[in-house]
Structures are given as structure tokens and as C-alpha cells.
Amino acid sequence: MIKEMFLKKPKSLSEKEFTYCPGCHHGIVHRLIAEVIDELNIREKTIVVAPVGCSVFAYEFFYLDGTVAPHGRAPAVATGMKRALPDRIVFTYQGDGDLAAIGTAEIIHAANRGENITTIFINNAIYGMTGGQMAPTSLIGMKTTTTPYGRDPKKDGYPIHVCETLQNMKGVAYLERLTVSSPQEVIKAKKSIRKAFEAQINQIGFSLIEVLSTCPTNWGMTPVEAIKWLKENMVKEFPLGVFVDKTKGVN
């Protein structure tokens, strides 16, 4: 019988080993982005802007030109690149602290300008890199190292809903919240990431994919338990779905 390789590591991922904890969803999302870049045949004109956070080394994990932005500033850095080289594909990869706390102004204005860039936003409701502190997206009641008694909205505010905030911005071309917590959802997520990149290729504006992700280490769960927790808790607070889709009929 003749064998053929069916699924293997995409070319747009480098040989560098991920620095992420076992079971962390960053790796799954990295691979999906790389597969999309391979399939769209844009590897040689794509530039990645990594954030500060657990994925600070993301620029090393992609076999692409890349850089790291100061904390929260990835959308501004990507804007500068895209304006200087409008025919390249530029994407940012950001976590919840980077995008929804320190970088709130940058993401809102990039979205509002309809900047032709793509943002992959990893929301795991906690600060991973610095050791489990409260994130802007931490759930109410969630215990973190800076909310030892649980997130209290009176004191700590409410979880920020990024997609809901961005969905009324006129410059947004594609906006979706999804998870990668089952093989079916992973396959679906890839289609969405592809749409987001296509929105950029077709120059119809800003695109963002929010991925609800696990942080088994800081949540204190096994990777499998973490997925269960995500489905039972995070999805309730952050409903999944397509918030904006202007890609229809554009080619």
C-alpha cells in the first residue's frame, strides 16, 4: 500500500520548539496560522508582530520575517509596517493583557481605522507570563494571584468583551470569537483564520479572531480539565460567533 503524508507541521512554522506549557492552546493556534499562510501561499510576504506575554517568542516560532512590539503596541507597530509596505501581509499575535489592558487604545484605533492588518487574539482570562495575575478578561469570581478572593466587579471591574467592543467600529472587516477545544472546532477555527487573512489580502479592513484558550498551568488544571472548564465557564461569559463579516462577495 502506498502511504502519503496527510497532516504534518506546516512550512510557516520554524523548527524552534514552542516555549509554551503542556496543553497550552497557543501551539494549536500557531499551527493554524502557519497552515493558513502556507495555503494562501503568502509566506514570503508575511510579517508577524509578536506581543509581550507568553507568546513573546512567537516571532521565532513562525518561519517568517518578524518582530516583537512593546507591550500592547503590536497594532501600532503593524500599522507602521503596513503603511510602509502596503502590499505585504502583516499580522499581530496578542494576548489578553497585551491587547485588552495596556494596548486597548492601539487595538481600538487600528480597528477603527480599518487598518489592513490581522490580529489573532488569545484570551485565556489570566496573565500567564507574569504568573497568574488578573487579566482584563478574568471572569467574575475568578481567583488569580492578584484577586485572591476572586474577581470582585465592584473593585476590579468586569471582564472586557473585545469583540463586542470592536463590532461597531466601521473599519472592521471580519471579527469572530471561537475556541480550539475540540478537533472539530480546530478545523472550523482554521477556516475563520483564513477568512481573516483573506480580508486583509482583499484590503477590506481590519480583521480579528479572538480565541478563547486555556491556561492549564495558571488555572491549576490538567489540559483536559482546562478544556472542560473553558467550555463550562468562559464560553458563557464570552459567547462564540461571528460578530462582523464583510468578506461575503469580496474576492
Partner: peptide, 8 residues
């Protein structure tokens, strides 16, 4: 298995 593997 491939889809869920975080480390390719």
C-alpha cells in the same frame, strides 16, 4: 490527534 497537538 494532529489537530489537538499544541506542539506540532
Amino acid at each position: 490527534c494532529y489537530q489537538m497537538c499544541p506542539d506540532s
